[in-house]
Amino acid sequence: MKIAVLSGKGGTGKTLLSVNLAAVAGESTYIDCDVEEPNGHLFFKPDQIRSEPITIKIPVVDQQICDGCRVCVDFCKFNALAYIGDKLLIFEEVCHSCGGCVLFCPLRALSERDTVVGEIRRGYSDQVRVASGILNIGEASGIPIVKGLLRDIPAGTTFIDCPPGSACIVMESIKDADYCIFVAEPTLFGVHNLKMVYQLVRLFGKPHGVVLNKCLPGENPAEEFCRQQGIPILGKIPFDPELGTINSEALIAAREHKGWKQVFQELLQTVMGEVRRETASHS
């Protein structure tokens, strides 16, 4: 069972929610797909870390063989190749590693080499298997790392901590999820961001629900939006200075205090009930 946690912007509480849900779920898997700024490991502090480099394939040209026919230049839909002054130029950061240029080169002047773009670190924190993706600074796309993270996930409950927003990397993160949880803030801006991920997840046809975070007494535009749209509200997390403090110290609230443990246990129960109900009706 793969549960993706996402939101339209950073700082809504994706990591807070996914870390704490995994912590109360017993034996489970937590995957940090926010490869540009992974922070789940700061909370879990996993041990027995194993590291695995992630590579992509980049074309290299043998200028001696290349005769400038430009088949590769014309083929590349991303315009990663240019032929200038009897030389083929390759723009690595524009390349999407499709391999087409290598395949189509009539003279076999192109070949591929592996380039490291980041790594995956896997470890354990109590009963939680923790996997974090790390994109090297300066690299253009974290998608190869997300693909690596979501390959061969062990059976059982998995929480996927998504990158913020609704771009390609988020789509890659939720692609194989069985259920999506939105985390939303109680402001108009929060509604705007919620709409982005709501539209995306509907496009993917994934069952979904929302957790309203930072709730204060009084009006909650995000809650109103959910009621209008008929989005199931899985739970509410209060705007609480104690929770904020625990979180800012990189501690897991559900492991620190009984009260918070209970909050997230109840939330997990609701989520799992909803996941079972939805996946049963979708299958």
């Binding site: 590349c76 990663a80 032929y83």
Partner: peptide, 18 residues
């Protein structure tokens, strides 16, 4: 022709100019 492309517009544009 690079103007409407998904990416690498500058590369394509420069190739056209060259």
């Amino acid at each position: 022709s690079g103007a409407s492309g998904q990416g690498g517009a500058g590369i394509k544009a420069a190739q056209t100019v060259v």
